[in-house]
């Protein structure tokens, strides 16, 4: 087991003067490769800010974030973008599927972003969709899919380019209990690998059982980290 993501004294504030909000107050935290780590805590505690910084979408005011040994915020902006394209997979709360694209095309986007030809990208995306049980829905558009199916397409999109880090933001928030459970089971089954870390931001206590480690955040810092025996289903 190796450290995949390491945050040291990460700080981030928004606004200035009286309106300044300290979103991260010196977060120190590590996520291990081969594990699913849940970031939990009340709204406004800084979870989303932290994963945005980990994924290279937000530059912290201070501290260091290393992802698989790379201090990502030491990289030039273009390299951070390239890093995100190759090394990070995303699962969003609202799926963020492009409505004009089919399931296969949506799942293929990360491959297209890194320059794969459309045909090859679609072929690989279709294979991942098959593994996620969406073989019959490959050519459907998002509005023709249920919420659970859309989330599975989003998971396929997060996995298709074999990233080393998968970041999920409230992946079950838009799903009913059964669909949420199924989505997490799939994520656990397909995403967690020895060379990959999965970080999930969630409020949903029903999915805590899928985690190998749970980090509790409050008021911009990590209050506690607890390891546990994950059980997928």
């Amino acid at each position: 087991m190796s450290v995949a993501v390491e945050c040291r004294d990460v700080r981030k504030s928004f606004g200035t003067g009286e309106t300044q909000v300290m979103a991260l107050r010196g977060v120190t935290f590590a996520a291990q490769a081969g594990e699913m780590t849940l970031l939990v805590g009340p709204s406004g505690c800084g979870k989303t800010t932290l994963i945005s910084a980990i994924a290279g979408m937000l530059t912290p005011d201070g501290g260091h974030i290393t992802v698989f040994g790379q201090d990502i915020h030491a990289l030039p902006r273009g390299k951070i973008t390239a890093f995100r394209a190759r090394s990070v997979g995303f699962v969003f709360q609202q799926f963020n599927l492009l409505p004009a694209l089919t399931a296969t095309e949506n799942a293929s986007i990360p491959l297209r972003v890194i320059g794969l030809p459309a045909r090859e990208a679609n072929r690989r995306a279709a294979a991942v969709l098959d593994r996620l049980g969406l073989a019959e829905h490959r050519h459907r558009f998002p509005d023709e899919l249920s919420g659970g199916q859309q989330q599975r397409v989003a998971i396929a999109r997060a996995l298709v380019h074999e990233p080393r880090l998968i970041v999920c933001d409230e992946p079950t928030a838009s799903l009913d209990a059964a669909s949420g459970h199924a989505a997490m089971a799939l994520l656990r089954e397909l995403a967690v690998r020895p060379d990959r870390a999965v970080i999930v931001v969630t409020h949903d206590e029903r999915i805590f059982s899928f985690a190998d480690r749970i980090a509790h955040m409050a008021d911009g810092h990590i209050e506690a980290i607890a390891a546990q025996e994950a059980h997928a289903a």
Binding site: T81, A85, F92, N96, I109, P110, V113
Partner: peptide
């Protein structure tokens, strides 16, 4: 804008 944002998040350069 969320779609453009998603593409940007997934590593599409400016």
């Amino acid at each position: 804008v969320r779609q453009y944002g998603a593409l940007k998040a997934m590593g599409l350069s400016d």
